[in-house]
Nucleic acid binder design. Structure first.
Length: 576
RNA sequence: GGGGACGUGGUCUAGGCUGGACUAGGACACCGGAUUGUCACUCCGGAGAUCGCGGGUUCAAAUCCCGUCGUCCCCGCCA
């Protein structure tokens, strides 16, 4: 007799003799009559047990096997998919006993601290919500593979033990036993390997791959995380990739949560994103677009604003729907928040029957009207005004835009607003004042900006793009440099001399010398993607065995001390 | 590296500001008993906590102070 799925029993299986096995979900002992809700991977069904004395010793989460006959219920339970039937048990075998549980596993929401949940992760994962998340994650991966396979991509594995290449984050290091004093690094991404793969004739590569970055954790950041990594040969125009990836997004959304994403996704230049949304990952689920009103205050009587414009800065306006009712106290708090974000101050205009404004004394009514018009504010709205260096104003207003939208409940539930952000700058200024890559050093500059490379590097744009979804950076990629001479020029701008370049990237530069095709690609943060589709707020809810905020694993106790002998083998001595 | 919140039986929590009748209360889980149509079963009874750890203040500390550890959130950091 073969085991059947609890959740597959129903009206059509009445009268059948079945064997079931699973976990005791709940018990209702009425003395002469015992009800057991039996749970397996397919669902839950009610068992009725009579005249089996052993059964009264059952506990929740015991693993049992039963034989019995499917019968129509006297009183159906509409809350249960199998609620029309029950299984009358004739034979019962306890396969494994469960101790009293540290927390209930039959509830949708967790009723235990995260630490307890992670310590008993095998119990936590039995909860329906996490089971759903695991299955959703599998379906997403499955849909990705299905789509990319159909598009001619092949999945190739790259090493986990590799060499440290100076990328943005701190590396996890693995000491070499055979070569004392030397270390492998766990990959922050398979960046150079995938470029070498396309150079090797793998024209369409992808990999669902674990990556490691030794930085502090967040709700949306784990030290080991999974990327959908992807690279194509003969990719010169990002648009060719966008179409393909929009197809991927549409496929995954359709197959997993049944949502139809409209294509094409909007393309938003980086400068526009910063100006209108104050962010390089704009949340397009709601309006509140920031308007530039610098010209309205240039040379005007309100000195704070006029001087900002004269000094090369900007004055920008953020409309707040239905914000006109805010009290002076609330506006004061907003200004405090703005100062915390680096602004010198925050002015406001309330749009009601007439206008009232914190700067009415200094600014003519007509100018205020013009600001309101440009910010597209309606009666009942509030307009916030900030002045200063353009980048600072943009970021601060962008942050306020998000906070006010969240607080005001202006973000529609169930909305999906993907967009491509394009035309990123190639470089940025580090805190120390040196030139750094905005994306990574293998990103190709825009052809027409090449003459600026050594002269005005900060003005060079990159063939670089992010896929942004609901204000979250979901994927990031670029067209790569495929010629050694250009790659060396970039290194020079970055202050990486020929010797250092040879030492760190010699293997890669050589690969570019033997016929490297133009190529490019992208990498998705898979965990975040799953998190969004699952509607979760933390990555830990979509990773089977995640780490705590301090990088520990309460289940296994990692990280942990190791034997002295192991350290000796690795030529490691621990201080202190 | 910085800021904030939290830590009380197995689990979740009340109490904490305003120290004293707190002999630390409740719910769930657990144990014993009853129970033949329940489905969050019900009813009766029971056991289980030196209030994360260390120090201090005080006649007296779960409660106030300092330190430390752990968890969570945020800033920095994350090409």
């Amino acid at each position: 007799m073969t085991r059947e799925g609890c959740g597959r029993l129903g009206r059509t299986t009445v009268g059948r003799r079945v064997e079931l096995a699973g976990w005791v979900h709940r018990l209702r002992d009425l003395g002469g009559l015992l009800f057991v809700d039996l749970r397996d991977g397919s669902g839950i069904v009610q068992l009725v047990v009579r005249d089996l004395p052993d059964a009264h010793g059952l506990s929740r989460e015991d693993v049992i096997r039963v034989e019995g006959t499917v019968a129509l219920r006297e009183a159906p339970n509409p809350a249960l998919p199998t609620g029309e039937v029950e299984v009358v048990v004739e034979r019962l075998e306890i396969l494994s006993h469960a101790k009293p549980l540290p927390f209930p596993v039959d509830e949708e929401e967790a009723h235990a601290s995260e630490e307890t949940r992670l310590r008993y992760r095998y119990l936590d994962l039995r909860r329906p919500r996490l089971q759903r998340n695991l299955r959703l994650r599998h379906r997403i991966c499955s849909a990705i593979r299905q789509y990319l396979d159909a598009q001619g991509f092949i999945e190739v594995e790259t090493p986990m033990l590799t060499r440290s290449t100076p990328e943005g984050a701190r590396d996890f290091l693995v000491p070499s036993r055979l070569d004392p004093g030397k270390f492998y690094a766990l990959p922050q991404s398979p960046q150079l390997f995938k470029q070498i793969l396309v150079t090797s004739g793998v024209e369409r590569y992808f990999q669902i791959v674990r990556c490691f970055r030794d930085e502090d954790l967040r709700a949306d950041r784990q030290p080991e995380f999974t990327q959908l990594d992807l690279e194509m040969a003969f990719l010169e125009d990002p648009e060719d990739l966008f179409g393909l990836l929009e197809g991927l997004m549409v496929h995954v959304f359709r197959e997993t949560i049944g949502v139809e994403l409209p294509t094409p996704f909007p393309r938003i230049p980086y400068d526009t994103a910063m100006a209108r949304y104050g962010s390089d990952k704009p949340d397009l689920r709601f309006g509140m677009e920031i308007a530039d009103v610098s010209d309205l205050f240039a040379g005007g009587a309100f000195r704070a604003f006029a001087e900002a414009v004269a000094g090369g800065g900007a004055v920008r306006a953020l409309p707040v729907p239905d914000g006109a009712g805010r009290s002076r106290g609330e506006l004061g708090k907003l200004e405090e928040a703005a100062k915390g974000l680096g602004l010198a101050g925050l002015s406001w205009i309330k749009v009601a029957d007439g206008l009232s404004s914190s700067i009415a004394k200094h600014v003519p009514e007509a100018a205020l009207q013009a600001v309101v018009a440009r910010a597209e504010a309606k009666a009942g709205d509030l307009v916030l005004l900030a002045a200063g260096p353009a980048a600072k104003v943009a970021l601060a207003l962008g942050e306020l835009r998000l906070r006010l939208a969240r607080e005001g409940g202006l973000i529609p539930a169930g909305a999906w607003t993907p967009a491509w952000v394009v035309d990123f700058p190639l470089f940025k200024l580090s805190e120390a004042g040196s030139i750094e890559s905005e994306h990574h050093p293998f990103t190709s500059p825009n052809d027409e900006d090449l003459p600026l490379l050594e002269v005005e590097p900060l003005r060079v744009r990159a063939k670089c793009y992010d896929l942004v979804l609901n204000g979250v950076e979901l994927a990031s990629g670029s067209i790569r440099i495929h010629r050694r001479d250009l790659q060396e020029r970039i290194f020079r701008v970055l202050g990486i001399g020929p010797e250092e370049a040879e030492r760190r990237f010699g293997f890669f530069l050589r690969a570019l010398e033997y016929g490297a095709p133009p190529h490019g690609g992208i990498a998705f943060g898979l965990d975040r993607w799953v998190m969004m589709l699952a509607g979760e707020r933390s990555l830990r809810e979509v990773i089977a065995f995640p780490k705590t905020a301090t990088g520990s694993c309460p289940l296994t106790g990692a990280p942990a001390e190791v034997d002295e002998a192991q350290l000796r083998d690795l030529h490691i001595r621990v201080e202190g």
